[in-house]
Design a protein around this nucleic acid. Structure first.
Lengths: 151, 151
DNA sequence: CGGCATCCGAATGGATACTG
DNA sequence: CAGTATCCATTCGGATGCCG
């Protein structure tokens, strides 16, 4: 068989019919628009997996070869690197450039679309870095209180 | 038993020791700092699950009761609503206010931290809304090409 | 070097039934 | 009303082995 073992991403990313509403208007009303909320969810689901963003960030400086990428991302298995790259390629975030030499050479790079993702994700990263300690202590407190009332 | 059935979130959110680096500096260098990349990944993993953001967005206007929230989010099961709310509460993004009446009343609301999440997530949502058609056609093309070379 | 196929444990998440 | 407990299907993701 040759199932290619793809990430099971259907074309679910937004099909709810508000294609007539301009993007800027949507940004203001999205607190009330369930469809827009779902768009956020879809993107987060797409991009929020274990490896996608680490890969995108690793490609920030330019094309990287497969095994270099494998080393750069660190904990990733070959299987997941392939799968995630295919998924990113499918969505047009990453391009795949094959140089048919021996041994073969394959370079991955961000497309303009992939580049454009770096900003919003970076901002989310800033949020994370800024608030990580607040979150950490909130967790501690919560866990402490849970154990406290269990006794 | 009373396992409470929590989301398995450990306190993994950033423990790599660069607490001395200011956030703004990190925002610039994060393309090269693997630890910062992982922070992004952690947050995305935390926030990128199927329901968290829909819940946060649904709480944007103020406190909402459990079942109202259940209706607002739409496809969510009771189990996942409870689990996700607990996880959000644990991280200090959502507060839980119990009014011990009969029948009982529980209101959920965004904390200031939860409010602060809405901006970066909203921007990511804008990105999604803006580029959804590009993504959709990229997918179509990819799938078409895949099927084409299979023949 | 850059994959693909297979096996398998772990996690996610839905449905249902029961409770204070 | 606001949960909790149990069961179950699907998906995620790692390890290993083979191939051009």
């Amino acid at each position: 068989m040759e199932t290619v073992d793809t990430l099971p991403q259907e074309g679910t990313l937004l099909s709810t019919g508000n294609s007539d509403v301009p993007a800027q208007a949507l940004s203001r009303i999205q607190a009330h628009a369930p469809s827009a909320c779902r768009t956020v969810t879809e993107v987060l689901a797409r991009v929020g997996d274990k490896w996608s963003m680490q890969i995108v960030m690793s490609l920030a400086d330019g094309p990287v070869r497969f095994n270099a990428l494998r080393r750069a991302v660190d904990g990733i298995s070959q299987r997941m690197l392939t799968r995630t790259l295919r998924a990113l390629e499918r969505d047009g975030l990453v391009s795949r450039m094959v140089t048919p030499s021996i041994p073969p050479r394959v370079d991955y790079a961000l497309t303009p679309l992939g580049e454009s993702l770096r900003r919003p994700v970076g901002l989310l990263g800033d949020w994370a870095v800024t608030h990580r300690e607040t979150i950490a202590s909130a967790r501690e407190r919560f866990d402490r209180e849970q154990r406290g009332e269990a006794a």
